[in-house]
Amino acid sequence: MTSRVQDKAPPRSEEMQQWVDENIAEQVTRYEAIVKEMEELEPERVQWYREFLETVQTSGFNVNGDVRRKIPDEELPIEPDRKHKVIF
């Protein structure tokens, strides 16, 4: 395989390793906070989903660009029996 500049990087300095470690810890903490925040939004989201499913039946679903199709009742999705998540 061709050698790349990235393969020639010197080892991380101690100060850079410390920076990376601190930032990894911060990312993990932030991710957990976002998961919690988004779970707390669930009651509002339930209402938003209800309104969205009404909109695609009345104004229509954007198939491509501004082309819309009104979704009939029989095509509407059914909520599965599992915990709903928006952050993965």
Partner: peptide, 10 residues
């Protein structure tokens, strides 16, 4: 990928 199922997962 457009769709209208808010409950689908990755």
């Amino acid at each position: 990928y457009f769709h209208f199922n808010p409950w689908s997962n990755p």
